[in-house]
């Protein structure tokens, strides 16, 4: 079964063809980073304009790259939320046009569930049924959450950030340090330039009931807070400008800041792991090398299985959308056309 997936929820314009839910025949991602970089973050209006401009060629390239004719596609899949409303609508409209033209079902996909599924793409990944139940950490620029994955399609949200996402904290920190955008890779690189992660002890963002508002049914001990780390960096920079009077250098600050975020993620995740034998980690921040090091060390020490998405499928991509769609029921044409964008749809 060949499925063409479309992903336009944020700042990546992506299309991919995946066979039988696992074999990625093509995966095309048009990154908008250069357009957003001057502003230090994603500008929704720029993202929408870029999607309109680039999606047609990205779609054509995905089908060409898969070595297929359009008629050989069995279904279409598209991210319907969460994400930027104006960006989601572009992908949805193109997908509906293709569904009508090809007379194929259009399967709506939840962006976070697709990120979870990204760890099960490719020839080396296990079948996702085989690792459940498990714990999943999904960590990106827009989301940081912990899920108990009971079975495919059955998820229970146990924790999430109460303010900024981890990737957002990286972006804001990199901006304060003058390292540019996107912040995650910039801080990762700077920290690797001899930075001392113990140079400055930035606060670990563990929200307390007294200060944070938690969503229903989540465990406060599995929740995160990253806004305080950014504020701590801001005040530190004001008081101790890097490079002056023996103050920590930018590399030390980057390493220390990264350590605080990663330590928070790892500590909360390991607490939530409980008796789960497998931890799945997905999302753009899962590319962070320090996070991968600490999780791998913990997996070796505690004996759980660590399942990370392949780097190509960590950031937003359509392969995860097309792959997951193979496990979903096909809607009717009328249902396909009624699919609407849900910018803030919950998960779990």
């Amino acid at each position: 079964m060949n499925i063409l997936g479309i992903e336009t929820s944020c700042d990546e314009t992506s299309a991919a063809v995946v066979r039988d839910g696992r074999q990625v025949l093509s995966s095309i991602v048009h990154s908008q980073i250069a357009a957003h970089r001057p502003y230090g973050g994603v500008v929704p209006e720029i993202a929408s304009r870029q999607h309109v401009e680039h999606l047609p060629e990205v779609l054509a390239e995905a089908v060409r790259g898969a070595g297929l004719e359009w008629s050989q596609l069995d279904a279409l899949a598209v991210t319907y939320g969460p994400g930027l409303a104006s960006s989601l609508l572009v992908g949805l409209a193109a997908a509906k046009g293709l569904a009508l033209r090809l007379e194929r079902p259009l399967i709506g996909i939840h962006h976070m569930e697709a990120h979870l599924y990204s760890a099960f793409l490719g020839p080396k990944a296990p079948a996702w049924e085989s690792v459940m139940p498990c714990l999943a950490l999904i960590v990106s620029g827009g989301h940081t959450l912990l899920l108990n994955v009971e079975a495919p399609g059955r998820y229970r949200l146990i924790g999430q950030t109460v303010d900024d996402a981890a990737g957002e904290a990286f972006d804001k920190g990199a901006s304060l340090l003058g390292l540019g955008y996107p912040g995650g890779p910039a801080i990762d690189r700077a920290a690797r330039e001899g930075g001392n992660p113990g140079a400055v002890l930035f606060p670990r963002g563990f929200p307390r009931k007294l200060h944070a508002r938690f969503a229903d049914d989540v465990d406060p001990n599995a929740c995160f807070s990253f806004s305080g780390i950014k504020t701590a960096l801001l005040y530190h920079l004001r008081k101790y400008p890097p490079g002056r009077d023996g103050n920590p250098a930018v590399a030390d600050l980057a390493a220390s800041y990264q350590e605080a975020i990663v330590d928070t993620l790892v500590t909360r995740t390991l607490t939530a792991l409980g008796r789960n034998e497998t931890l799945v980690v997905a999302g753009g921040v899962s590319l962070n090398r320090r996070l991968r090091e600490l999780l791998a060390a913990a997996a070796a020490a505690r004996g759980f299985r660590l399942l990370l998405a392949e780097p190509a499928y960590c950031t937003d991509n359509a392969a995860m959308v097309a792959g997951l769609a193979a496990h979903k029921q096909s809607p009717t044409l009328a249902e396909s056309l009624a699919l609407d964008a849900c910018p803030s749809v919950e998960f779990g």
Binding site: L55, A60, S71, V90, A93, G97, R101
Partner: peptide, 10 residues
Amino acid sequence: MALAQGLALP
């Protein structure tokens, strides 16, 4: 525009 492109591409 996206709808027209989706209809036209194949």
